[in-house]
Design a protein around this nucleic acid. Structure first.
Lengths: 237, 237
DNA sequence: ACCTGAACACCGTTCAAGT
DNA sequence: ACCTGAACACCGTTCAAGT
């Protein structure tokens, strides 16, 4: 799944563009990520990216087969950044908690890229590194192979699913984002008790609660369940 | 947040289009949902929708302010369908389990619409109905207001987050979907034990596990935790 | 009162031509 | 060997004009 069209990438000689830029996969990915964060997900078009780089849009097709392929490269770059900021200590539960929270925080720091990529399997270098590392944490902690994979799967799905959910609002175009922020106060908090008794009775709590992420609590629940299964698998031996 | 441009909707007289169709919000939403499922999320363009309806694209702007507004109407229609297929029994835990699984199954039945809408707050009629109903189930079960809202929030976030996650693959354009399905077998299952010992040791389990959804297990975990908190709040009284 | 059609400012992607 | 530019087939949205 290495998506380069030309096999010996990095070694070939490159002519600068008319505007004097020497293109590379790294430069393109960095520029794409910057464009997305500065101007929103809708700013990531081949034409705008070409303009931002100082190159003809069509030249990018030498580096990426199509826009989706570029998106996966951006996703992998985000995984790489999260993974390399993480320092495992050897305590599997603390390490996974820290990694989960870092993944979630990393997504919220790049919400517009995260929402586009959180549900994708990249099969690229940093994702592979992350899978290997997490499985290592679990197997070293004593989880049997099948159980390690189950916990890995639950952990990763949960981190990705909540990262996307919590990034989604921030990633919306400005108009939609503002409309959505208002809904709880403008619509729900104003429903009359006659027709909507349960919403009216809890409106105050609703407005407050819906602002926070439910990820940390869900993560803790998962880690506790995993610990219980680890204890169980030790008893079985 | 009712998004109609003309207030007295449904009561006004309508001229049929050149092709003889009488437009309505309902007809547009149904047609949009059908288009998405038959031809993919990318088929939902104002121009294609106009063609499918037998109307000029620009006429749709009398019913929806913009495409995003139409998307929210489609999302609300999906919520409505799920909610009305659900029959609560009075056992809160069984009822929430059933509703969660129905929401998830409903999303997978319309994956392309689900992935576009699962992270949105519509503020529309069926969503409001769903919030009222779920809060009612929890309050009737004896959850105090603040606790009912906490459990509601965790339940809904989880259902939406996993619905989007599990719909995402099916919702991809055909080419990307096939590439992604191959990654676990074509990339991960072939990594050598020398460089990736943990992946190599568990590859068989990985390929099998990553095909299934981790939602049912996560849902059960959440319901168990909620039950424990309910017991706790009863002791406190 | 509602639908239409032209217009504007965009897209992704391909491919022959240039350097 | 790599970049360019034209071309093709699309987008969402607005607004004056038609019925």
């Amino acid at each position: 799944m290495s998506e380069r069209v030309v096999p010996a990438a990095g070694r070939r000689r490159r002519r600068p563009t008319k505007q004097g830029v020497v293109l590379s996969e790294e430069l393109i990915v960095e520029t794409a990520l910057r464009l997305i964060e500065e101007h929103g997900a809708e700013a990531l078009s081949v034409r705008r990216l070409g303009r931002a780089l100082g190159a003809d849009p069509s030249s990018l097709y030498r580096y990426f087969r199509h826009t989706d392929d570029l998106m996966l490269a951006v996703a992998d770059e985000l995984i790489g950044r999260t993974l390399h900021a993480w320092r495992p200590t050897g305590d599997w539960r603390a390490d996974l908690r820290d990694l989960g929270l870092r993944m979630h925080a990393g997504a919220l720091a790049h919400p517009r890229a995260a929402v586009l990529s959180a549900h994708r399997v990249t099969g690229r270098r940093y994702e592979i590194q992350a899978v290997e590392t997490i499985l290592g944490v679990l197997r070293d902690a004593g989880f049997p192979d099948a159980e390690a994979v189950r916990v890995y799967h639950a952990f990763v799905d949960q981190a990705l699913a909540y990262s996307a959910l919590d990034s989604a609002n921030t990633a919306l175009p400005a108009a939609a984002r503002e409309a959505e922020a208002d809904v709880w106060e403008a619509t729900y908090a104003r429903l009359p008790a006659g027709t909507h008794p349960h919403i009216a009775a809890t409106a105050r709590h609703l407005v407050a609660s819906m602002r926070d992420s439910s990820y940390p609590a869900a993560l803790e629940l998962l880690l506790t369940a995993a610990e219980a299964r680890l204890a169980l698998s030790r008893v079985r031996d």
